[in-house]
Amino acid sequence: MATVIIPAQLRKLTGGKDRVKAKGRNVRQLIEDLDRQFPGFSEQLLQDGDVKPSIAVSIDGEMGTGGVLEPVGEDSEVFFLPALGGGRENPGG
């Protein structure tokens, strides 16, 4: 099972826990499993069936480019973090 590190603002969903285990071969399945364990995750992370534009997914230290289709490994470490500029901005100068 993958380890998911929960960002500060979502820890209320996990009862304050900052790391939880979840299973799934890609980000979609992982979020589905998180939502089963801690209802509310899907709503926080997904919009129109994909990862919200304001959120980035890092898997084993690498920023995913595939949204919900990004593969997740058996022992992966998965972080959900704010996308640069909250997705409203272009990524940089």
């Binding site: 704010p82 640069l84 500029g85 909250g86 409203r88």
Partner: peptide, 11 residues
């Protein structure tokens, strides 16, 4: 309008 780079500032 919303959209300062404060998230990047924080990170």
């Amino acid at each position: 309008f919303p959209g300062s780079p404060v998230g990047a500032g924080a990170m």
